[in-house]
Simulated scan of single mutants.
Amino acid sequence: MAKQKNIKVGISIGDPNGIGGEIILKAFEDPLMLELYTPVIFASTRLFSFYLKEFDLSNKIHGIKSLDDVVLGKINVVRLLEDDFIVEWGTVSPKAGEVAIKSLRAAVEALKENQINVLVTAPIHKEAIQSDDFKFPGHTDYLNQELEGESLMFMISESLRVGLITDHVPISEVANQITGKLIKSKIGTIKKSLKRDFGITKPKIAVLGINPHVGDNGVIGRDDQEKLIPALEELREDGNIIFGPYAADAFFGSGNYKNFDAILASYHDQGLVPFKTLSFGSGVNYTAGLSHVRTSPDHGTGFDIAGKNEANPSSMIAAIHAAVAIYRNRMSYDKLTSNPLKSSSRKRREY
């Protein structure tokens, strides 16, 4: 088997007062990681030298001024930030938010220019990042603006995939935001992602109800009867393998989720509470539906443990593995579907 290409993994540092720097460096403590992937971190060498000393890590970083200077198999740190930032562990700070956004913007530009293959984002603090020129509630909304496609927050692990119809919106606005058009769009995105990103030929998708007990035939709200059920019926008529809507309260506890390739939840906590209960530490936040691949750990900034050398890098490692696997799946899928006759002819000749 031919050796696979070493993939350039762009990494934005997230909130520098949180655990982002710690889990990034710990993810690449294993030399095997550098044989498989080349990290390109958008930060500063001074900041990461501080993290190395603070956590007594033996990694070696390679500072670069330009993405043209990236060295495969090394921890590349793009000298992006000013060196006057001082880490204040666990503190919500506008200055830290500025650092996080500057790192994110540079990483996304590199992704758009194909100077990196995939993007992995360390956690940001949603309050710290708010400013006059950045008013997004999180990564997903910003990426949806910057990249082509329609984004879907897709939480993934080895045994579970959960997408969301609505994500970072107040619970009071969920029902108003859900429309038949939005439901069809999100299911279409999940279906395409399952095929292109995960290699599932005939995806089976389960959908959770909007109201408790799927509204009990209108007794507990009519959103399911008037929006969700008609949309699912139309999708099934078009040949989609869609099941539900299911009452969310028993769906995961009964193990029913194991029967499907993905589950679509109506709102953030309906999907993320069971996902994190079942997969925390190994789960990944994947932004499906966009022109480029972005993943993130399934946790936040970890301000409560920041600076204590207690952060577990397992979800960051899972996010890196997932990003590269999805990238390679996409390349294979696109190659096979771009010219199927040519591909089929080549296979016959090789046989």
Rank of each mutant, 00 (worst) to 15 (best):
I124V: 14
H125V: 01
K126D: 10
K126I: 09
E127N: 13
A128W: 06
I129R: 06
F136E: 13
P137G: 06
P137T: 04
G138V: 08
G138C: 07
G138P: 07
T140L: 08
T140C: 09
D141M: 08
Y142V: 06
N144W: 11
Q145S: 15
Q145N: 15
Q145V: 15
Q145P: 06
E146D: 11
G149D: 05
F154N: 01
F154Q: 02
M155Q: 00
M155I: 00
I156W: 00
E158V: 00
R161H: 05
V162E: 01
L164Q: 02
I165K: 01
D167Y: 11
D167P: 05
V169I: 15
V169A: 01
V169R: 00
I171Q: 02
S172M: 07
S172L: 10
E173L: 11
E173K: 14
E173D: 15
E173A: 12
V174N: 03
V174M: 03
A175R: 14
N176K: 15
Q177H: 14
Q177E: 15
I178E: 13
I178S: 13
I178L: 14
K181Y: 14
K181D: 15
L182V: 13
I183A: 02
I183W: 02
I183P: 04
K184N: 03
S185Q: 15
G188P: 12
T189D: 06
T189K: 11
I190M: 15
K191M: 12
K191D: 15
S193M: 03
L194H: 06
L194T: 07
K195E: 14
K195T: 14
R196G: 10
G199W: 00
G199H: 05
G199L: 02
T201Q: 12
T201K: 13
K202L: 06
K202E: 13
K202F: 08
I205E: 05
A206R: 02
V207N: 07
V207G: 07
L208G: 09
G209P: 13
G209D: 11
I210F: 08
I210T: 03
N211Y: 07
N211Q: 07
P212H: 01
P212A: 01
P212F: 01
H213G: 09
H213T: 09
H213S: 08
H213L: 05
H213C: 08
V214G: 02
V214Q: 01
V214H: 03
V214F: 04
G215A: 04
D216W: 00
D216C: 02
N217G: 01
G218N: 01
V219Q: 03
V219Y: 06
I220L: 15
G221V: 04
R222S: 14
R222L: 10
D223K: 07
D224N: 09
D224A: 09
E226W: 10
K227G: 08
K227A: 07
L228S: 05
L228M: 14
A231Q: 06
E233K: 15
E233W: 05
L235F: 05
L235G: 02
R236G: 10
R236A: 10
R236W: 08
E237T: 09
G239C: 08
N240A: 11
I241F: 02
I241D: 12
I241W: 00
